[in-house]
């Protein structure tokens, strides 16, 4: 078990290194000198040359690579090339909690929607309600999350005026301001995942309900409600755990777009704004952190899963 965790962690580190290296070289291999983009308004070749030397860009690429990696280990991601040239690590430190809040809340939204829908669908299999949920799940999967976000804004922010349309309030300003800004974006992100989750719960429940111990529980004279909730649902949850890895991927990918709809300055908005502004240090930093979140959550899921089911071994 320990060996497995160590090996899996080592593998995650290797993947992280590969991503960092790929990003470093690819951002530099693409035509268009980042410095030219940076200094397009200066137009002084001497200034460009000076800055090139100052940033070490006159060195061979492999020297730059090692220097860059050294700084990376000290948590130095460079500075934004715009405005007050704020440190990238600071931008990311501010964005990080916003994205995590959003992803966590989206996960709860998905659970709240999916668990009852999945349970009812399984218990009332092939009823109109089941077909209804199936259809809604199909809609949820086919709906772009940014469109759902716009629809939610139109209904709840513009027309009903129940919730704010855009922005973010940190938790330090109070629980309700924080939550009220996150409700609509969380629903926009969580809906697609809840559709998947509901389908998974339904099929897992149907599988469990067929097994012998459910028959035993029923023949003991237990209430149907107890059989469903205490015996069946608990066992149906085990296969559902596997989708948590997918959950994280979906929720993070959703956050990248939906943060931009609600103007929440999380990691996704930082990344997209960086791309639009051609702010390479910011783009690089954001890609590294978003990737680290994916790789770390994959690792976590694998380890969790190995703890639940000791038969699993490292395949790769």
């Amino acid at each position: 078990m320990t060996v497995y965790i160590l090996r899996r962690s080592f593998y995650a580190l290797v993947v992280m290194w590969a991503v960092a290296t790929l990003v470093f070289f690819m951002l530099r291999a693409v035509p268009g000198d980042p410095l030219q983009a940076m200094l397009f308004d200066v137009g002084d070749p001497q200034a460009v040359e000076q800055l090139r030397r100052k940033l070490g860009l006159d060195q061979p690429i492999y020297v730059q690579y090692f220097l860059w990696f050294g700084r990376l280990f000290q948590g130095d991601l460079g500075n934004s090339i715009y405005g007050s040239r704020i440190e990238v690590s600071r931008i990311i430190a501010e964005a990080f909690p916003r994205t995590i809040s959003l992803a966590t809340l989206s996960f709860f939204v998905a659970l709240i929607l999916a668990v009852p829908a999945g349970l009812i669908s399984a218990v009332r299999k092939n009823s109109p309600l089941d077909h209804g949920f199936t259809f809604v799940a199909f809609l949820g999967l086919s709906m772009p999350d940014f469109w759902l976000a716009i629809l939610l804004i139109i209904v709840f922010a513009v027309n009903l005026q129940w919730l704010p349309a855009i922005g973010y309030a940190p938790l330090s300003q109070g629980f309700w301001p924080w939550l009220s800004h996150l409700i609509l974006p969380s629903i926009a992100i969580g809906t697609a995942f809840s559709a998947i989750l509901a389908r998974m719960i339904r099929s897992a429940m149907l599988e469990v309900l067929k097994s012998d111990f459910i028959q035993v529980a029923r023949s003991k004279g237990l209430l149907e409600r107890q059989v469903i909730l205490k015996h069946a649902f608990r066992n149906a949850l085990i296969p559902v755990i596997t989708v948590i890895g997918i959950a994280f991927a979906l929720l993070m990918a959703g956050a990248v777009i939906v943060e931009n709809v609600f103007a929440i300055k999380g990691l996704g908005r930082v990344l997209i704004q960086g791309i639009l502004n051609r702010d390479y240090p910011v783009v690089q930093g954001a890609i590294l952190v978003v990737s680290a979140i994916f790789i770390f959550s994959n690792l976590l899921v694998d380890v969790l899963y190995a703890m639940i089911d000791p038969r699993i071994e490292l395949e790769k």
Binding site: L27, G32, F294
Partner: peptide, 16 residues
């Protein structure tokens, strides 16, 4: 290891 959409965003970041 990454969702397709995220990979697409990364590549747009690189290619423009």
């Amino acid at each position: 290891a990454f969702p397709n959409f995220i990979i697409a965003v990364y590549l747009v970041a690189i290619f423009g």
